[in-house]
Computed example of a mutant assay.
Amino acid sequence: MKTNGYYIKARLFPTILTSIPILSLYYFGFSEKLIEFMTFLEGYKWASDITLSIAIIYFLAQINRFISKELFQNLFFKEELNMPTTNLLLNSDTTMAKSIKSQIVQKIAADFNILLLDSNSENHNGEEARKTISSAVAQVRNATRDNSMLLQHNIEYGFVRNLIGGSVLAAITSVFNIFLFQYTFSNPFAFKLNLVLLGIYILPILLSKFLISRYSKYYAKILFEQYLKK
């Protein structure tokens, strides 16, 4: 399995940080019963030298990404149409200076032959204006794909977003563990550990709107700054 900086920092690291409740469930609850079975499975290599442990981590990374993108990002932004990368180029948005926005709009027209709607057209058809901007932003991203500064901000946004998605699964697992270690496999330490973990993982969920909005705005500003420099 090929990896890169984005995958390791934005997907793998959040998965590791949010897998602690699952590891505690295995270690304190089922390790004796599963150790022989897991050892047997890990003795075999899968296609492309993917072991069972790597496959599980990859699977959890995909779940975290799905939850963070489909549940949180789409909930707050309705896919691309309401993300900061779209909002910043709306005529009605005053975040950027008009002169800077005008330079971006002109550069987009020159580079990609995409004409963004003017103020009157935007007022009459806001959705079409957003769709046009979204298409233009996709081209801007492709044009700045190799920019190291932009990649760093993209990693930061991806890390935060995927950490929030992973925290949902981690919180659910922690709740399950709390009841399990309280009533089924009585273990005071594991019970307290998962109680603390539940509090830790609930925090990014509660702050999800603030975190995703803040980091996505950082990314959007850097995207257009670096695009103008290109």
Rank of each mutant, 00 (worst) to 15 (best):
T184W: 09
N154H: 07
S167M: 14
Q103R: 15
G126L: 08
L211C: 05
T85Q: 10
A136R: 03
K101Q: 07
L89W: 03
I104V: 12
Q139N: 05
I100H: 13
N194D: 02
F191E: 14
N142A: 06
L193Y: 10
I100V: 15
A136K: 00
I133H: 05
L193R: 05
A190H: 03
N120P: 06
P188K: 14
R141C: 15
T85H: 00
T86A: 01
E122F: 00
Q139L: 07
E127F: 11
N120S: 05
L203I: 10
N194F: 06
F112E: 00
S167T: 14
A170M: 10
L180F: 14
Q182N: 12
I114P: 00
A129T: 01
Q139Y: 13
G199E: 01
L195A: 10
G166N: 06
F179H: 08
L89N: 04
T144W: 03
S174M: 09
K101H: 02
L197C: 02
E128T: 12
H153P: 12
D111P: 01
E79D: 15
A190L: 06
L211R: 10
N120R: 08
D118V: 02
F159L: 11
L151G: 08
L88F: 10
P204T: 06
L203T: 09
S148F: 13
G165H: 06
Y183P: 08
S148I: 14
V168I: 15
L89D: 03
Q152P: 01
K101L: 04
R145Y: 10
A129V: 01
L197G: 04
L193S: 02
K192S: 15
K131F: 02
S213N: 14
Q182F: 15
K209G: 10
S92R: 10
L206F: 14
V140T: 03
N113Q: 11
K98Q: 11
L150M: 11
L88R: 02
S99C: 03
Y201W: 06
S121V: 04
L195H: 07
K107F: 00
L206R: 12
L151V: 08
